[in-house]
Amino acid sequence: MNIAVLSGKGGTGKTTVSTNLSLALKGNYIDCDVEEPNGFLFLKPNINEVQKVLVDCPDIDEDKCMSCGDCVNICQFNALAKVKDNIILFEKLCHSCGACKIACDYEALNYKKREIGAIEKGQSKEINCMRGLLNVGEPTAVPIIKTLLNNLPKGLNIVDCPPGTSCNVVNSLRYADSAILVTEPTEFGLHDLKMAIGVVRMFNIPFGIVINKDNNRDNRIRKYCKEENIKIIGAIPYSKDIARIYSNGENIYYNLEQKHIFDKLAEEVKRMIVWS
């Protein structure tokens, strides 16, 4: 069972919910926010395995290449360019689709492997932890997300998705059985929540809402969810004490005064799983 935790924008508390919910449910923590994977800062796992993520990249045989430009014309990602009598490769723009090799009549194109990041696995007390790491300067995170999610451990997995509604999020949701959308009671929070709901509904995934920095009033998020008949499954209070806990890199779930927040959320998630 894979539960995706996502938000329409960054900074809403998605990783706070993911890490503490993993502890409450004793589920595996999977960090798919490969450009900023900060869940390990809180869970502090002992990393015992590192796997390189490699992608295919064109390798031009200059002795065979006739500089005809057919590979350039077929490339939809502008990874190849013809400059005078030379074919220039921009390897970071390549999506490894294979079209250039098919188009080459002179068999001048083959593929080599190129490292773009890594998968790290470890153990934090009673839960397994995995995360993807995209190398600095790499523009495409999807291959790392796919590699990470194709090797999930058995059992319950809490998948900390990238922020926003980009292709990174879409690829993370392909593996989800249900979803938790984290938001905050601001106009920006509501705007981006609506976009996230649209993506989740596109996949027909059951979902619930968690409000972070909740003021316990009839705010714009609560009004919207009531109008749209969307279930709010949890709320994290607007609290200086809670802010102090996670600012120190600590887990809210281990604080005896705040532990009940995620125990209650865990029970709601169990009901959502049954419904799913």
Score class of each variant (00 low, 15 high):
27 G>W: 01
27 G>F: 02
27 G>I: 02
28 N>P: 01
28 N>W: 00
28 N>I: 01
29 Y>R: 00
29 Y>I: 00
29 Y>H: 00
30 I>D: 04
30 I>H: 08
30 I>E: 03
30 I>P: 05
32 C>F: 04
33 D>Y: 09
33 D>Q: 10
34 V>P: 00
34 V>Y: 01
38 N>K: 08
38 N>S: 05
38 N>Y: 06
39 G>M: 00
39 G>H: 00
40 F>R: 11
41 L>C: 12
42 F>A: 01
42 F>S: 01
45 P>M: 05
46 N>Q: 05
49 E>Y: 00
49 E>R: 01
49 E>P: 00
49 E>W: 00
51 Q>G: 00
54 L>G: 09
54 L>W: 07
55 V>Q: 02
56 D>A: 06
56 D>W: 04
58 P>R: 03
60 I>T: 05
60 I>L: 07
61 D>M: 08
61 D>S: 08
62 E>C: 11
63 D>T: 02
63 D>N: 03
63 D>F: 01
65 C>N: 01
65 C>G: 01
67 S>T: 05
68 C>A: 06
70 D>C: 04
71 C>K: 08
72 V>G: 08
75 C>Q: 02
75 C>L: 03
76 Q>M: 06
77 F>I: 04
79 A>Q: 09
81 A>T: 12
83 V>N: 02
84 K>S: 14
85 D>F: 11
85 D>T: 11
86 N>R: 13
88 I>L: 12
89 L>N: 01
90 F>P: 09
90 F>C: 13
95 H>N: 15
96 S>E: 06
97 C>H: 06
97 C>Q: 08
98 G>P: 13
99 A>W: 07
99 A>E: 13
100 C>Q: 03
101 K>H: 02
102 I>S: 12
103 A>V: 09
103 A>S: 14
104 C>Y: 08
106 Y>T: 12
106 Y>D: 13
107 E>M: 15
109 L>N: 13
111 Y>C: 03
111 Y>W: 04
112 K>G: 13
114 R>H: 12
115 E>D: 15
115 E>T: 14
116 I>D: 12
117 G>F: 12
118 A>N: 12
119 I>S: 10
121 K>L: 07
122 G>E: 13
123 Q>P: 06
124 S>N: 02
126 E>V: 09
128 N>M: 13
129 C>G: 01
129 C>T: 07
131 R>C: 04
131 R>V: 09
134 L>C: 11
135 N>L: 14
136 V>R: 13
138 E>G: 06
139 P>G: 07
142 V>F: 07
142 V>N: 06
144 I>R: 04
145 I>C: 08
146 K>L: 11
148 L>K: 15
150 N>A: 15
151 N>A: 08
152 L>Q: 14
152 L>V: 14
153 P>N: 06
154 K>T: 15
154 K>S: 15
155 G>I: 15
156 L>R: 02
156 L>D: 02
160 D>R: 12
161 C>M: 11
161 C>W: 07
163 P>Q: 13
166 S>P: 09
